[in-house]
Amino acid sequence: MAEDILDLVNAMKARGATFALATVVRTVSVTAAKAGAKAVIEADGSISGGWIGGGCARGAVIRAARAALQDGTPRLVSIQPKDLLDHQHIGAGEVRDGIEFSRNMCPSQGTMDIFIEPILPRPSLVIVGSSPVGVALANLARQIGYAITVCAPAAEHAAFSAADYWNDGFALPDAADGARFVVICTQGKGDAAALAAALQAPPSAYLAFVGSRRKADALRIELAEKHGLPADRLAAFKAPAGLDLGAITPDEIALSILAEITITRRRGQRDA
Rank of each mutant, 00 (worst) to 15 (best):
A67I: 01
V25D: 05
E94P: 06
S48K: 12
S161C: 12
W51I: 10
A65F: 05
E117F: 05
V61M: 06
L172Y: 06
L199H: 06
N104S: 08
A176F: 12
V40N: 05
F160G: 03
T111M: 06
A147N: 12
D174R: 13
P74I: 09
D7G: 11
L85I: 11
M1S: 15
R103C: 11
P240Q: 06
N139S: 14
S102D: 14
H157C: 06
S46K: 11
G110Q: 05
R180Y: 04
E222L: 13
L172I: 03
P107N: 04
A138L: 02
I263T: 14
L258H: 00
E260W: 01
T23Y: 04
D113E: 15
R15N: 12
G55Q: 06
L195I: 03
D168P: 02
R26D: 14
A155L: 07
N167P: 03
A192P: 11
R96A: 11
F160Y: 12
G110A: 02
V77W: 05
F101K: 08
A254K: 00
Q200A: 13
W166H: 11
S256C: 02
S48H: 11
D174K: 15
Q187V: 06
A33I: 05
D174L: 14
T249N: 07
D191E: 09
E117C: 06
P153Q: 06
I144E: 00
